[in-house]
Simulated scan of single mutants.
Amino acid sequence: MLEIVQRGVSLDRAEKVAIMLHGRGASAHSILELEKYLNLEGFALLAPQAKGNTWYPFSFMAPDASNEPALSNSIRHLEDLVSGLYNQGLESEQIYWIGFSQGACLSLEFATRHAKRYGGVAAFTGGLIGEKLQPWKYSGDFAGTPVFIGASFRDMHVPLERIEASAKLMQSLGANVQKLIFQDTMHTIRQEELDWVNTHIF
């Protein structure tokens, strides 16, 4: 099991839980800095720490085998974390996903492989994982879960085409997807993105 850094309300008192996934080379503590900018009052914040600071070794669009077994292990760790929340009496709609870059990709991938009514998904620069999208990997019903994806129109790591395809696939499973695509080339989180998710998700 991964180390989990916790902040916010204690789990036994929380009515909402945010699972926050850091980017490649970053840390659980770094993604938790978003607490300063997002409306997360009253949330339990859970930030898993990836081994070696990466959830999988290569690009999220690299040949699938090259990211194994790390990707499957990361998904399995998240399955264990979510199962633990369910065992504590929490429902899926009380769970929110927040990720940046590699963490955004993993957030989208996990939620779409286990589609159900979550509280929301905020993916700051991310898309579904795989050399090619394989719709058979994904199942369930998002039942209107609000999903946000924000990114540059020409991000160095996440092509716009993959964002568009990811959004379309998630919409086919019932997600309410909003994309904000910016006319810059920065790999970052913008104030406009924070404002949108604070208004519409948190």
Rank of each mutant, 00 (worst) to 15 (best):
residue 127 G to P: 05
residue 33 E to A: 03
residue 100 F to H: 14
residue 89 G to V: 04
residue 36 K to V: 00
residue 48 P to K: 03
residue 120 G to M: 07
residue 86 Y to D: 00
residue 13 R to V: 03
residue 188 T to I: 13
residue 29 H to M: 10
residue 110 F to N: 07
residue 52 G to Y: 09
residue 166 S to T: 14
residue 13 R to Y: 07
residue 137 K to E: 09
residue 44 A to W: 08
residue 174 G to Y: 06
residue 13 R to H: 14
residue 100 F to C: 11
residue 94 Q to F: 02
residue 1 M to D: 13
residue 129 I to Q: 09
residue 196 W to R: 03
residue 14 A to R: 09
residue 20 M to K: 04
residue 165 A to T: 02
residue 181 I to W: 10
residue 131 E to S: 12
residue 199 T to A: 14
residue 163 I to G: 09
residue 180 L to N: 05
residue 105 C to E: 13
residue 114 H to Q: 11
residue 180 L to D: 07
residue 61 M to H: 14
residue 42 G to C: 08
residue 196 W to E: 08
residue 191 Q to P: 01
residue 70 A to N: 11
residue 169 L to D: 06
residue 157 H to I: 03
residue 72 S to V: 01
residue 46 L to A: 12
residue 12 D to Y: 07
residue 123 A to W: 11
residue 107 S to P: 09
residue 164 E to N: 12
residue 55 W to A: 13
residue 38 L to F: 13
residue 112 T to P: 08
residue 108 L to F: 13
residue 92 S to N: 10
residue 199 T to R: 14
residue 199 T to N: 11
residue 76 R to T: 15
residue 93 E to I: 00
residue 76 R to Q: 14
residue 37 Y to T: 02
residue 93 E to A: 09
residue 166 S to D: 02
residue 32 L to T: 04
residue 90 L to D: 04
residue 48 P to Q: 12
residue 170 M to T: 04
residue 84 G to E: 06
residue 141 D to A: 11
residue 146 P to N: 12
residue 79 E to G: 07
residue 101 S to V: 06
residue 77 H to I: 01
residue 103 G to T: 11
residue 120 G to E: 01
residue 165 A to R: 10
residue 141 D to N: 15
residue 11 L to K: 13
residue 113 R to F: 09
